[in-house]
Design a binder for these strands. Structure first.
Lengths: 160, 160
DNA sequence: TGATGTAATGTAACGTTATAACGTGTCAAT
DNA sequence: ATTGACACGTTATAACGTTACATTACATCA
């Protein structure tokens, strides 16, 4: 066990994320309601991009009562507005933000095999883009950078 | 007329694009069928991102006969595969590639006001991303970079 | 305390985007 | 003339997202 590359205490990682969320909401006076909490938990559960309807079904399963799409989307909007989750446009899916709280322009590395996502944060990318945009007289408000490819694990698994 | 900032001979610009497309397909032995041509023409018609269903309706209007979604998506797949159009993930829309033929990792500047899109091509961005990815042992296959903001015209119009 | 305002959630219907599965036509090469 | 590959047609359905309006929860302050 000691030699495994990624022990990854998942339970701890999730509860960390929830604690951060609670903290951020408390700070900003936002209401971290049970529904929002459940949606965020569900998103963190797999460490993978999660579709809105996947969340929806899980919530419905939990407590017999089915949940409407709009309910999930509202919670997702809240979570995004507070920087707790990101939307991955290339997948129509959502993922928990490991740097929640730190305002950032994230770059996502999306593994085409295992679908896991790494979030990196290189200010140089945003700066370069901002400069390029400025050269055209274009003023930037937000960015979306998603890089598709293969994660180290999957490269190894393909004994590449 | 001589002093207008952007004369932009649209007819010429579209017919150039079509000629390029024809050339590229001829080179690669791909079949530039009437349907594919019509879809590409429709995409170029507005210089704006165009939704698949918008194309679909226009095609149906042209010749009484309605067209099925899958027909349009197949044509779009073809056009993308040959680098003639790009998909804008943040808009679920498609736009003609002004650099068709030149393999490239494009960066899109999308104006939130007028929806027009500029495609820029700064190799530095891709290189930085590739380096960042490599640092994580991640091998890149494709990228998607979409920058939202305001184009020069719309900034001026807002007398910003 | 109970009237009031606001934020959150519920409910139903609908709109938009995309694909699956399978059949038919077209055309070139053998 | 047959075969095989590819393009396109047809039907159905999956997947994703929003609008509009009703109801409930909760804080606040007269």
């Amino acid at each position: 066990m000691a030699s495994r590359p990624k022990p990854h205490d998942h339970a701890a990682c999730v509860s960390d994320a929830m604690a951060r969320a609670e903290h951020i909401c408390a700070e900003t006076g936002a209401r971290f309601t049970p529904l929002r909490r459940r949606v965020l938990e569900r998103i963190w559960a797999g460490h993978k991009p999660t579709g809105a309807y996947e969340i929806l079904e899980d919530l419905g399963r939990d407590d017999g009562k089915p949940v409407a799409p709009v309910t999930v989307y509202r919670a997702l909007d809240f979570l995004m507005a507070h920087g707790l989750v990101h939307r991955l446009n290339s997948l129509n899916a959502f993922i928990g933000c490991p740097r929640a709280g730190a305002g950032h322009e994230a770059v996502f590395l999306i593994c085409e095999d295992c679908k896991r996502v790494a979030e990196i944060d290189d200010p140089a990318v945003g700066e370069t883009l901002a400069r390029d945009a400025a050269d055209q007289g274009f003023s930037v408000s937000t960015q979306m950078i998603e890089v598709m490819g293969r994660c180290p694990d999957c490269q190894a698994a393909a004994h590449g």
